[in-house]
Simulated scan of single mutants.
Amino acid sequence: MTAAQADLLIDRPSVADGAALWRIAKASGTLDLNSSYSYLLWCRDFAGTSAVARGADGEPVGFVTGYIRPERPHTLLVWQVAVDSAHRGRGVAGALLDGLTARLTAEHGITSVETTITPDNTASARLFASYAARHDASVTREVLFDAGLFPDGPHEPEVLYVIGPLTTAPTRPSH
């Protein structure tokens, strides 16, 4: 754990965090931005399968949203990961993923993580490859949603990353 990570609290989001999550997602410049309303709902309905990193002042500086797949109850689908620009490059995203999956492994027995990443999002690809390595897990990739399925203009394909089986704790700290 880095000094920057030691100063963070990894926590469940609350509805009061919804606006901050929306702002962090908007400022990321890479995420598909959902409505502010959806972040409020996410913090209400999926707080148990999501995590927020809080700075010393208690304000969110990063988040990961996810849900347990109804048809695969041991699989966490990671929807979005974002970190405030002032906190990037400090291992916050990795600490969020590690903290969330440790909690969900204990609470729900999750054994794998799924996420989708567009081919041009090298930062996310590196984040999840590093996560898999820390957890001694394999990664498989396949196109989940072809570009032609998106009705709202040009969109790259969404590649499904399946990571697992997970070990209960990372073999190396995130950094």
Rank of each mutant, 00 (worst) to 15 (best):
L33R: 05
N34F: 15
N34A: 14
S36L: 15
S36M: 12
Y37A: 15
Y37K: 11
S38P: 09
L40K: 11
L40A: 14
W42K: 14
C43E: 09
R44I: 13
R44P: 08
R44V: 14
F46Q: 06
F46I: 12
F46D: 12
F46V: 13
A47F: 03
G48P: 09
T49W: 00
A51G: 13
A51F: 10
A51V: 11
V52M: 03
V52H: 05
V52R: 00
A53F: 04
R54H: 07
R54Y: 06
A56E: 13
G58Y: 04
G58I: 07
E59C: 11
P60G: 05
P60M: 08
P60C: 04
V61T: 07
G62N: 02
G62A: 07
G66M: 08
G66P: 00
G66W: 01
I68G: 00
P70E: 13
E71S: 15
E71V: 13
R72W: 12
P73W: 12
H74Q: 10
H74P: 08
T75D: 03
L77N: 10
Q80L: 09
V81W: 00
V81G: 02
V81S: 01
A82Y: 05
V83M: 06
D84E: 15
S85P: 15
A86P: 11
A86Q: 12
H87G: 07
H87E: 10
H87A: 12
R88L: 03
R88G: 08
R88M: 11
R88P: 02
G89R: 01
G89V: 05
G89I: 10
R90H: 15
G91T: 05
G94C: 00
A95N: 05
D98Q: 12
D98A: 15
G99M: 06
G99Y: 06
G99F: 06
G99T: 04
L100T: 01
A102H: 13
R103H: 05
R103P: 08
L104C: 06
T105P: 06
A106L: 14
A106M: 09
A106F: 07
E107D: 15
E107M: 11
H108S: 13
H108G: 05
G109S: 09
I110G: 01
I110A: 04
T111V: 13
E114L: 10
E114G: 01
T116F: 08
T116N: 05
T118G: 02
T118K: 02
T118C: 02
P119N: 00
P119A: 10
D120T: 15
D120W: 13
N121Y: 00
N121G: 03
T122R: 12
T122S: 12
T122K: 10
A123R: 11
A123W: 12
A125F: 08
A125Q: 12
L127W: 02
A129Y: 07
A129K: 10
Y131H: 08
A133G: 09
H135A: 00
D136K: 10
A137Y: 03
S138R: 12
S138F: 15
V139F: 07
T140W: 07
R141D: 10
V143L: 06
V143W: 05
V143M: 07
V143Q: 06
A147G: 09
A147E: 10
G148M: 05
D152N: 11
D152F: 12
P154V: 15
H155W: 07
E156H: 08
E156C: 01
E156F: 00
E156I: 01
E156D: 06
E156S: 02
P157D: 07
P157K: 06
E158F: 02
E158H: 01
E158P: 06
